[in-house]
Amino acid sequence: MTKPALKTNAGARARKGGFGKNGGRGPGDYRRRGGAQGGSDGPILLYGLHTVEAAFANPDRRRHRLFATDNALNRLAERGVRPDVPVESVTPRRLDGMVGRDAVHQGVVLEADPLPPYGAEDLGRARLVLALDQVTDPHNVGAILRSAVALAADAVVTTERHAPEEGPVLAKSASGALDMIRHVRVKNMARFIGEMREAGFQCVALDSAGPETLEATAFGDKVVLVLGSEGKGVRAGVREACDTLARLDMPGAIQSLNVSNAAALALYVVRRALSPTG
């Protein structure tokens, strides 16, 4: 069988509403983002059972077609997924040709539009926001998205440049979390931090030179936790825009963590420090 064409549906993508109760901007024209499908305008391919299940549960995800094996369709049905798009029964080999042999598609691929471009204006009701300053690895960002959902963060913020765009690799690494949390992309992280401080958020950058440990830091009611890339860390201009620096002290022989592990630990510390209403 031939590989299906990913067709653009320009003009039909704008829709009302936004994220949850807060509303939001219309998505406008989408670009195909990231992964093997990156480059031109058009939908993206999402794969994996958790990823596809979350995409069907997200009212903000505009879906087009589902390609699945009979076994995968049965597994989706067991999870309560009722596809609201045309379904094409295909072989695993066909799916390999769509997303690559190395992709763990679990027998299911969904053709869908990228999510709407959420912005800082969509964070009015947030209390815990995680900002990633030029973290570029989609596997790390995907793992961080999953931890952010698990620890009840309200949003993950990345830069428009030097950060992975939405695509199949990021979505698969997030294992459904991409459709369960706001992923905000900003042009200028330092400016975003300034805007959040003006909105009443306490902005804390994780830095090995922080004067206090994260556990000893006093947190307000609304917090933006900022992490930087491995090696460079949070950039100087972004650090200066924050209210304070804090560090994570490691008691063992290894003194540093992968950024996704550091994010999970830091989110846990901050989440426990926030009031129960958070």
Rank of each mutant, 00 (worst) to 15 (best):
N58D: 14
R32D: 03
V169K: 07
V234S: 15
H183Y: 01
D179S: 11
G35R: 01
D60W: 00
L49R: 12
V104T: 09
M250R: 05
F19A: 13
A177E: 05
L110A: 09
G11S: 02
E215R: 09
L170A: 08
T217A: 12
L267M: 04
E88G: 06
P4G: 03
R272W: 04
A68C: 10
G100Y: 14
A190Y: 00
L123E: 06
E121Y: 10
E111Q: 15
A241K: 06
D154Q: 06
F19L: 11
G11P: 04
A131D: 03
N188R: 12
V81M: 12
D29Y: 14
T8F: 01
T69D: 08
T159P: 03
Y268M: 07
R247P: 02
G24C: 10
G26T: 05
S175K: 15
V85T: 03
C242F: 13
L151A: 12
Y47M: 10
A36N: 07
D60I: 05
G194S: 08
Q255G: 07
K232F: 15
A55L: 10
A171I: 12
A241P: 07
I181Y: 01
A68H: 11
G142F: 12
A266L: 08
A143H: 03
R101P: 01
S40K: 06
G28K: 08
E111N: 07
T277L: 12
G228L: 14
A174Q: 02
A103V: 13
A12L: 14
C203D: 00
E195R: 09
R125M: 11
Q106A: 04
